[in-house]
């Protein structure tokens, strides 16, 4: 923990001393992801000040403005994010933008950094450097998991993690959006609105019949759905869904794809998945990660025909 703080201080220091480094976003070394955002204005007017520090300040102001422009309408904005574990770069200068209301599929071979990316977005892991913004201007690197979850980013894990000692209903009840104070929970009363909400979610996730079952006794697919139900209960702006159909039957996979499309009507969703059939069934824009950075992006057909992608998937 202290490491990351030190790291952060060091980064800030570096940002101070070399403003035209990673502080200027899409002009950085990984422009691939930043197509939709224009920033020609910054490049257009070189600024020379008689005083070096004034130059620094000016550059930083411009950089900030550029960022603000770039981020304004995004829901999730990752820029130049890097994270390494013991020298291994799990995420390497990753830049990724999700628009509001978008549903995005992320594919990539094992070790491409998908899970680490999720960890960074949800606050479990702090990046070594780079920016992570939510809803335009919330810097996610400054918040912990609980705060990020409360802001409206929900996450479903690769391995379904539900509260096995609780019933399906209680799992959802604990996840319902609402105050998160401890003493509030102590004096909490179940009310009509809460029951209705739970009812809706149970129906959406096809778990109504199992509402009193302990989560431990659910089948694998049901646990996946329960976890998605818990996500819905949080009513998040953005859902991060990690391999939702791993280990599912074809029928279940179909059903899950339908469920996700349904959800995507009211939420932004990022799905990480291996299963190409499933991704095709989703029918959304696809980003392919490789070795911690974006390899290709576009429709599934475009991505799957990209020679770089073909090389990564087939070439080894």
């Amino acid at each position: 923990m202290s490491d990351s703080i030190i790291q952060k201080v060091a980064d800030e220091f570096r940002a101070l001393s070399e403003p035209q480094g990673n502080a200027r976003p899409p002009a950085g070394p990984a422009p691939a992801a930043a197509e939709p955002v224009g920033n020609g204005a910054v490049h257009g007017e070189p600024f020379v000040s008689p005083h070096p520090y004034a130059t620094v300040l000016h550059d930083r102001r411009l950089a900030a403005e550029a960022q603000g422009l770039a981020r304004r309408d995004t829901l999730l904005y990752l820029n130049g994010v890097t994270k390494s574990f013991d020298g291994f770069k799990a995420i390497n200068n990753l830049s990724l933008v999700i628009q509001k209301g978008e549903m995005r599929a992320i594919i990539g071979p094992n070790g491409a950094g998908k899970t680490t990316m999720m960890d960074i977005i949800t606050g479990k892991t702090r990046p070594d450097k780079g920016e992570v913004f939510f809803a335009g201007d919330v810097d996610l690197t400054h918040h912990d998991e609980a705060a990020i979850a409360s802001m409206g980013i929900g996450r479903k894990f690769q391995k379904p993690t539900v509260f096995e000692s609780h019933t399906v209903e209680d799992n959802i009840r604990l996840s319902l959006a609402g105050p998160r104070s401890v003493l509030g929970a102590l004096v909490h009363r179940k009310d009509r609105a809460e029951r209705d909400r739970i009812e809706t979610i149970l129906e959406t996730t096809r778990l109504t019949a199992r509402r009193k079952t302990y989560a431990a006794n659910l089948s694998h697919g049901q646990k996946q759905w329960l976890e998605i139900g818990m996500l819905l209960a949080q009513d998040p702006e953005l859902l991060l869904v990690d391999e939702p159909v791993a280990g599912m039957t074809d029928a279940e996979t179909e059903e899950t794809a339908r469920l996700l499309r349904e959800i995507a009507q009211h939420h932004s969703v990022v799905v990480v998945e291996h299963d190409m059939h499933f991704v095709r069934a989703l029918g959304v824009k696809v980003t392919c990660l490789h070795e911690g950075s974006v390899l290709s992006e576009g429709t599934l057909d475009k991505v799957s025909n990209d020679p770089k992608v073909i090389e990564v998937y087939l070439g080894r």
Partner: peptide, 27 residues
Amino acid sequence: SKLGKLMIAVRDAESRTRFIGWRPQYV
């Protein structure tokens, strides 16, 4: 109480409670 259920949730899967917005440290 709901807090009690939350306690058990913390006991069984602490990090999960964080991702649904609770702060297990206060629990």
